[in-house]
């Protein structure tokens, strides 16, 4: 599908994957620690961008163009998730609904935040 690629770019892709994984660990730390729900949503938004970059790098590394399609689909879905969480925070913080602006959104961070809580 893709022509044979040089060893230099291959090494660069490996370095980039390492850097991106380090970034993901840092973001996950903010997600666990984040004092407010908004901080956690920011961290999740950045995490999804990092995952998109990671998928594109993986596509360079393996030479499989299919990963690009995965990245496109993931970017769309992550955007919808971020929007939903932002609206949720905004509604939960209305004075009419006083119980816990900060407790419920944590429950929403289920997939990434779960194992670290």
């Amino acid at each position: 599908m893709i022509a044979a690629q040089g060893a230099f770019l291959h090494g660069a892709a490996q370095a980039a994957i390492t850097i991106l994984l380090a970034g993901m660990v840092l973001v996950l730390w903010r997600m666990v620690k984040g004092p407010t729900a908004a901080d956690r949503v920011v961290a999740m938004d950045l995490l999804s961008v990092l995952v998109v970059a990671f998928l594109v790098t993986l596509s360079i590394h393996t030479g499989q163009a299919t990963y690009l399609d995965v990245a496109i689909a993931f970017a769309c879905i992550a955007f919808l998730g971020t929007i939903a969480l932002a609206r949720f925070i905004e509604r939960a913080s209305r004075p009419a609904d006083e119980n816990s602006a900060s407790d419920n959104p944590q429950g929403q961070d289920r997939s990434q935040g779960g194992p670290y809580d």
Partner: peptide, 23 residues
């Protein structure tokens, strides 16, 4: 190949800076 590698490393470094900034 070299241009692509430079873009790749620069891009991943910016991602790392974003993560550091969030911290």
């Amino acid at each position: 190949e070299y241009i692509a590698a430079i873009f790749l490393i620069l891009g991943s470094l910016f991602c790392l800076i974003a993560a550091l900034g969030v911290i």
